[in-house]
């Protein structure tokens, strides 16, 4: 089994999850290869350190193996399902850490989106030649700063719109509108990726 990490993948082989569901460990290995970099990047972005991100990813993949039948193709693509699950587990750990009084870093000011906004994609991304990454990066940079920031605070830090409003000292309705408008724009621009 090739242990070398792979670049982030924009999608998954649609046959992999059904094969994993049948207990195919080979398919499980391919699933890891095609998704782990993106999921690890996500976990690292949320949790802020590699060890925690690695622990989280191990739990996520084991959960995929155990609860492999819970995936419903009618509800979305396999990658969207994996991202949702990874983000959810990571946010849970983040909140648990906050509840225990551990400090939580706020990487929003030096967020990857800002780096992408500088037009300097990472070497790995460039080598991957991934059109999806370019499309997503471009869509994020074209969002108004306030909309993008609100979405990132919610998605990567697990803040609700009322918490974001309090954090940014903005009216509640304004934050909701920003998130809704930003998500609608992203949905429109990124729709070709799943259709």
């Amino acid at each position: 089994m090739d242990l070398s990490p792979k670049p982030a993948a924009s999608g998954l082989d649609p046959d992999l999850l059904p094969r994993v569901a049948r207990g195919d460990r080979g398919a499980f290995g391919q699933l890891y290869e095609q998704s782990s970099t993106l999921l690890f990047s996500l976990a690292f972005r949320i949790l802020g350190d590699r060890d925690s991100a690695a622990d989280l990813l191990q739990d996520v993949y084991l959960e995929v193996w155990r609860k492999r039948v819970s995936y419903d193709a009618a509800r979305g693509s396999p990658m969207a399902w994996l991202v949702t699950m990874t983000r959810s587990r990571a946010i849970d750990r983040l909140r648990s850490r906050t509840a225990k009084g551990h400090g939580v870093t706020d990487p929003i000011d030096h967020s990857p989106a800002v780096q992408l906004a500088d037009g300097k994609p990472s070497p790995l991304e460039a080598s991957a030649g991934n059109e999806t990454r370019s499309l997503v990066g471009k869509a994020l940079t074209e969002l108004p700063e306030a909309q993008r920031k609100a979405i990132e605070l919610a998605f990567y830090q697990g803040l609700s719109h009322s918490e974001i409003a309090a954090k940014l000292n903005e009216p509640l309705g304004t934050v909701k509108t920003r998130i809704k408008l930003g998500m609608d724009k992203l949905r429109t621009v990124l729709r070709p990726c799943w259709e």
Binding site: M1, A8, T37, A54, P112, V136, A139, L190
Partner: peptide, 25 residues
């Protein structure tokens, strides 16, 4: 959800540790 599923593509790539796959298997 497809939209949020794509959001991590906007993050800089952070490769998982080399031994992670072995640990999981």
């Amino acid at each position: 959800r497809e939209t949020t599923g794509l959001l991590p593509n906007g993050l800089p790539i952070t490769a998982p540790p080399p031994g992670l796959k072995g640990r999981i298997e």
